[in-house]
């Protein structure tokens, strides 16, 4: 199963070194903003706006404290009269003449994001796989036109369709609901999923299913036992694309959600502004926001890397 068996030209050591250097330099450059956000999330608010910027600083989790809590300003006397602080967050908040009033909305918003993004990704990939298989294997009347139609749903910018969708959702009672957002993101992503997956499934020789069907399986069984395992690479790649879209989507989320179903992207910017610009809290929110995609990609790394020429049937 070595990938090397497929490569014809073995690169020289020099070529490998040059390539490695380029990749590392590029990776560093593109990671600087991320690292900066990560670093900022561990700064104190004064450190985060210090000029010149502080590269070396004493790490603090104040940003994370502020992210997960809401605070109110109180007089020194009131704070001093309180019982001893119960933890680090409590203590730092008091040092800034504030007390923790309760949990912030970040956690529920983050959970909304998880539910909506993973839910819509699952739906889009599920529907996309079935549709792509159909387009790939059966003579669908007007297949080309249908595929174009599916793609065309993606051509309009969100802002152009947001108002009609907003009105429709209001009528249907889907405004500001997780179900509404899942439906919307599924609709947007399914086009991408169908197109991507059709390419992958076209690559899987029909003989696999045909062999299974001759050997006594129904088409659905053949699809499940033979086609799906072959398509895992494509499905993993598609799922990541769908998830990234749904996770990062801002325009629809900002327009169609405001309360219970609000996702993290429109929420995070609202952290700014409650008593000064709290950059560490924003950075902390952003850092946590990045984690799921990172984890998901790492989990699916094997499927992604397993190359589609893995099959034994390749010509």
């Amino acid at each position: 199963m070595s990938a090397a068996a497929h490569s014809v030209v073995v690169p020289s050591t020099t070529a490998k070194r040059v390539a490695a250097t380029l990749v590392i330099v590029y990776a560093l450059i593109s990671m600087i903003p991320l690292l900066w956000i990560f670093a900022t999330s561990f700064k104190t608010p004064p450190d985060s706006i210090a000029y010149p910027p502080k590269i070396v600083f004493t790490p603090s989790i104040e940003g994370y404290c502020n992210l997960f809590t809401t605070r109110t300003r109180q007089t020194r006397e009131y704070i001093d009269a309180l019982p001893a602080p119960t933890g680090f967050c409590d203590e730092t908040t008091r040092k800034r003449n504030m007390v923790i009033a309760g949990p912030s909305n970040f956690l529920p918003r983050f959970v909304n994001s998880l539910v909506i993004a993973f839910g819509s990704t699952f739906c889009a990939v599920f529907l996309g796989t079935l549709a792509a298989y159909g387009f790939s294997r059966f003579r669908v009347p007007l297949a080309d036109d249908l595929l174009f139609f599916i793609l065309s749903t993606r051509m309009m910018p969100p802002i152009a369709v947001a108002i009609p969708i907003y009105l429709m959702y209001r009528e249907l009672g889907l405004s500001d609901t997780a179900l509404g957002m899942i439906l919307l993101y599924t609709a947007v992503n399914v086009s991408l999923a169908v197109w991507l997956l059709k390419g992958f499934i076209d690559e899987i020789p029909r003989e696999y299913e045909e062999a299974a069907m001759i050997d006594g399986y129904t088409r659905l069984q053949a699809f499940r036992k033979v086609v799906l395992p072959q398509a895992t690479t494509g499905i993993a790649a598609t799922a990541i694309f769908c998830l990234i879209f749904a996770w990062n989507e801002y325009a629809f989320a900002a327009l169609l959600t405001s309360g219970t179903a609000q996702t993290a992207p429109p929420f995070i910017p609202t952290i700014i502004g409650e008593g000064g610009q709290d950059w560490p809290a924003v950075a902390a929110g952003t850092t946590i926001f990045l984690v799921p995609i990172l984890v998901f990609t790492i989990l699916l790394r094997k499927q992604l890397l397993r190359g589609i020429t893995f099959g034994a049937v390749r010509k």
């Binding site: 020789p205 003989e207 696999y208 045909e210 062999a211 069907m213 001759i214 050997d215 006594g216 399986y217 129904t218 033979v226 395992p229 072959q230 893995f310 099959g311 034994a312 049937v313 010509k315």
Partner: peptide, 20 residues
């Protein structure tokens, strides 16, 4: 009749062995 109801075996040119 459907392929699976015919009790036939087929050997394909490219063998179609399931790689997984």
């Amino acid at each position: 009749r459907r392929a699976r109801e015919r009790d036939i075996a087929f050997v394909f040119q490219l063998f179609a062995l399931y790689p997984h």
